[in-house]
């Protein structure tokens, strides 16, 4: 073998220099790298397993046998209600006689009323309802997975040192950073879409498999507050934003573990302690988690102290959907700006 590491003439046989890559082409390269990453595959498998487990849980909760058993329990409750009310009235009468106070009220009329089937959660298993339930509960988890993917996608480049090599091929830093943020966004969104699609497919199967027989008399399914696709779009947007935030934090902190540490630290210290312990709950208006909840649930509420002229009391405060998305968009913009500035100005060693 030759003593040189290269053939005597290693020039390209294509006889032309590389022509450079468009921004879209560069995003394509980044997406390819994202797809090749082991963590991406692990995340996809984890999401599939989580979705499968959620769908299985929905299946076992809505099986005809389970519904029939719940209906039996409901009927027993209906039969026992008059007797319970009667016993209550007797005890109430005894107490009134003993105390001489005829105003004593044990609330026996309420005790004699049975809840409705809807209140008992008994309804036909319908795909959209199942999907809606699973999607809402998985939204935060999907956001965290997207954030982790984004952070690791950028952090690994710094920790392996390959960012320096990459910049010797693409020295325009803002362009490089932008393509990484876009790829992280697409990755986060793709994970959310995968979860929602699988959930919906699974929910449809559950609805078909668990369709109860005509002997079960169930109430009509309450209509969802909004089309399922609108909720899905919000969850995808949340995951997309989380992916971008993860990648932007990766540009600042340059290590996946550092990003995870900061995010978890923020969740525990700021969200878990500071938001609750200071200003009598009024800080919750600026809580990221509360605003995520407001964004996904189209509004939410929290308890905080409000003071009138004479006294203070804890009252329920509403956090609107608009406040949620405006706040989250602002946070996203701020983190991205910090990430881009840090990446553009700091040395890569």
């Amino acid at each position: 073998m030759s003593n040189t590491l290269v053939s005597p003439d290693s020039r390209p046989r294509t006889d032309r220099r590389p022509q450079g890559t468009s921004l879209a082409g560069l995003v394509g390269v980044e997406l390819r790298r994202l797809w090749w990453r082991r963590l991406t595959k692990v995340a996809v498998v984890a999401v599939v397993l989580f979705t499968g487990a959620s769908v299985y849980n929905a299946y076992s909760q809505s099986s005809p046998e389970r519904i029939a058993q719940q209906l039996d329990e409901y009927r027993i409750l209906q039969q026992q209600a008059p007797r319970i009310a009667e016993e209550c009235r007797q005890q109430q009468a005894v107490e009134r006689d003993r105390s001489g106070d005829q105003s004593i009220d044990f609330g026996c009329d309420e005790q004699g009323q049975t809840p409705t089937l809807e209140q008992m959660g008994l309804a036909l298993p319908v795909a959209d309802t199942i999907t809606d339930g699973i999607a809402r509960t998985s939204s935060l988890l999907l956001a965290f997975v997207a954030l982790l993917l984004g952070a690791s996608f950028v952090g690994a480049e710094f920790s392996t040192g390959s960012m320096g090599l990459w910049l010797t091929f693409q020295p325009r830093r803002l362009r490089v950073a932008s393509t990484k943020l876009v790829a992280a966004a697409v990755g986060g969104a793709a994970v959310a879409v995968l979860c929602l699609v699988l959930t919906n497919l699974g929910a449809r199967m559950v609805a078909v498999v668990n369709r109860p027989g005509s002997d079960l008399d169930l109430p009509p399914v309450p209509a969802l507050g909004e089309p399922l696709v609108v909720l899905g779009l919000r969850i995808v947007a949340l995951a997309l934003g989380a992916g971008i935030v993860g990648a932007a934090l990766g540009l600042v902190l340059r290590h996946t573990a550092a990003v995870v540490g900061v995010v978890l630290g923020f969740a525990v210290v700021v969200e878990g302690i500071v938001m609750q312990a200071f200003l009598q709950g009024r800080l919750q208006r600026w809580s990221v988690l509360k605003n995520i909840e407001a964004f996904i649930e189209r509004g939410t509420s929290y308890f905080a102290e409000t003071c009138g002229p004479t006294s203070c009391e804890f009252t329920q405060q509403t956090l609107s959907y608009t406040h949620g998305w405006v706040f989250l968009s602002s946070v996203l913009l701020l983190v991205v700006l910090v990430g881009l500035v840090a990446f553009r100005r700091r040395d890569v060693t």
Partner: peptide
Amino acid sequence: LLAGAIGS
């Protein structure tokens, strides 16, 4: 990946 970055 590197080839893609320069359009090679």
